[in-house]
Design a protein around this nucleic acid. Structure first.
Lengths: 226, 226
DNA sequence: CGATGTATTGATGTGGATCAAAATAAGTGG
DNA sequence: CCACTTATTTTGATCCACATCAATACATCG
């Protein structure tokens, strides 16, 4: 919660946590590696969950299309993140969002079939998946709380800070976040117009600098005005 | 999604699904039964998750106190529902909400310790917990989508319908839901004033009738105007 | 019957969405 | 390198759904 991480997370933090090297090898052997091009769709909302993904390189946007046609970005996934958790369940479920790569990258993919076998041999996998799922629940709960209690400005601020934490890259003059206004808007549950105006204001105050598709957080501490 | 259920759900739907009678006995034997009075707090947001609950009778409100002091109701739990899932994890986590009984009832309780042992013997438990957790994720995602795409009226409508489904009781003249405006307001993410006004309007249209703490849904089909 | 929690009702205000239009940047291909 | 297209961002004007506030009414109960 406190400070910007910015250190590449250990890829085995999530799905493979607490699993012995041997078992880990067995599990990874059951996956196949896939290379991602930019803007490639891995799966869509409502499709049967047949593949589990572990992101290794690149970024993936997890979103959902509302019946109004409006796209809701639920999160930007980064290396180490796991998605498509429904795949692990014995009964068939459906993806609750659409996953698409924002840039070129790399994923490990497991099919439902393999996962069934693997969770049989390594029950720890289920538990790890549970941890991840509960984490998502917590994230949603907080986002929801933000939405109903704080102002648009504070929400944008939090969204940007979180992004800086997870997908930001350190530069000499702060943190660079590759994100466009529209995604930011959706993540903060704010209109793109408001995003533009607020970023402009922060820029005038010297907290950030902005160019198309990129936000430089110059002064992370000034951003957090909770 | 389609019709009102109103049938008491099998208590073994969730946590104990797909588990053999023998194993089931072993698991239940590890729990202790606890009777609930009304307005009893089972745990609070932020406390260490040390107990897993399975609700057998009564209703439990799962909520969260925003820093603004405002209470956010995340859901009304009904018999069969499981909560405190973090208890199952090996590493310590914290409850993300506060659980308190709305009326007298009954729960089965497992301690962290017992759960560790039980999930070792019955890995199916982890998977079931995962299913429940993913369900919660889906519920949140939908609620969030509602919040950012549809009107207050539609949100209230959905919230009430959902409640009718889960906690409603069938009467000669429709479905009775024991809920007060303020809870309804929080569940639908709407102000209590708006709730009052909308319910009044629906009452004039003959869709519901209302008395203190109770909403009678007279005409469920008229409610759904998606 | 006070007393306390719950619900109603009307009046007022406003945060931020929406709309329309233009400006800017980034391709793309000749 | 320029003309042309397309995506992104900006800016100002307008608007409205809903919250908020204030006051009152209604239930329920000890």
């Amino acid at each position: 919660m406190a400070s910007n991480r910015l250190s590449p997370r250990d890829l085995t933090d999530h799905l493979l946590a607490g699993i012995s090297p041997g078992a880990r090898q067995d599990i990874v052997a059951g996956s196949c590696q896939r290379t991602l091009r930019a803007a490639q769709v891995l799966f869509r909302t409502g499709e049967a969950a047949e593949q589990l993904f572990l992101l290794r390189k690149g970024r993936v946007q997890f979103s959902r299309l509302a019946r109004t046609g409006r796209q809701i970005v639920m999160g930007i996934l980064v290396p180490g993140d796991v998605f498509g958790l429904g795949t692990i369940l014995a009964q068939h479920v459906h993806y609750i969002g659409t996953a698409e790569s924002l840039e070129s990258g790399e994923v490990l993919v497991w099919t439902r079939e393999t996962m069934q076998a693997l969770t049989g041999r390594h029950p720890q996998l289920s538990e790890n998946a549970l941890r991840v799922a509960l984490h998502y629940v917590a994230v949603f709960a907080e986002r929801h709380e933000s939405l109903v209690t704080v102002s648009a400005e504070q929400r944008l601020c939090r969204a940007l800070t979180r992004l800086g934490d997870s997908t930001g890259t350190r530069t000499r003059s702060g943190i660079e976040v590759r994100i466009k206004n529209e995604q930011l808007a959706s993540l903060a549950d704010v209109s793109p117009f408001t995003v533009s105006r607020l970023l402009k204001r922060w820029e005038r105050h010297g907290v950030i600098t902005k160019s198309r598709g990129i936000v430089h957080i110059v002064c992370p501490e000034k951003l957090l005005l909770d």
